[in-house]
């Protein structure tokens, strides 16, 4: 213990619970939330400029690994966080929807940059005006493109959601209603 305290490594605090000699009791939700929070597997759905800024975030200077999210999952089946970075055109929309639907629960969506959030400066016939028209979004990051610090801030917001998410989310009526709104199962 003292060795770790001396080093720069941060260990997350254990959730509230009852502790005694040789045992520790807490709720399942809290333990699972803690795990999920600190090991997000993002799927970088990078289409344009924001993707380059995400590369900078993931690279050496900003190092996304400090937040436990450096394991990029390119398969939607094994990702919990869909990071949509860049303009989504109408031609791309069905692809994005399909990727989202392939993801397993729990899943969060991060819209990075103005284009993904609202269409940005591209108010044109070929661009989808914000991805929240086709899939639910949890966190929006403003900027065109956002700075790496902002991306990290967005990831931290997702971490807060992940920490407090109940393990039974998909059974909740609110969640079912949300999915129904987007025409998904």
């Amino acid at each position: 213990m003292s060795e770790i305290e001396k080093s720069k490594v941060n260990i997350v605090k254990a959730p509230d619970g009852i502790e005694g000699p040789g045992f520790f009791v807490t709720t399942m939700d809290k333990a699972v939330g803690l795990g999920r929070k600190n090991s997000l597997w993002p799927l970088p759905f990078a289409t344009s400029c924001c993707g380059i800024e995400f590369m900078a975030t993931a690279a050496s200077t900003y190092d996304l690994g400090r937040f436990g999210a450096e394991r990029l999952s390119f398969s939607p089946r094994q990702a919990d966080l869909l990071m949509v970075m860049g303009t989504i055109s109408k031609k791309m929309t069905p692809v994005l929807r399909q990727v989202y639907q392939q993801m397993a629960e729990p899943r969060w969506v991060l819209a990075m940059g103005a284009c993904a959030s609202s269409g940005g400066i591209f108010d044109t016939y070929s661009v989808l005006q914000g991805i929240d028209r086709v899939i639910p979004v949890d966190v929006y990051i403003p900027g065109c493109p956002p700075r790496p610090e902002q991306v990290i801030d967005g990831i931290l917001e997702i971490q807060k959601l992940a920490l407090n998410e109940t393990t039974r989310r998909r059974n909740q009526p609110e969640y079912k209603a949300l999915m129904e709104k987007y025409g998904m199962e």
Binding site: K91, G119, D123, T124, Y125, S126, Q129
Partner: peptide, 23 residues
């Protein structure tokens, strides 16, 4: 090549609007 096959019009002709129209 750039737009969807079922677009139905040729957008760069002057009579067609730039904006999306769904906002």
């Amino acid at each position: 090549i750039l737009n969807m096959d079922d677009m139905g019009y040729h957008p760069m002709r002057k009579e067609f609007p730039l904006e999306d129209g769904t906002r």
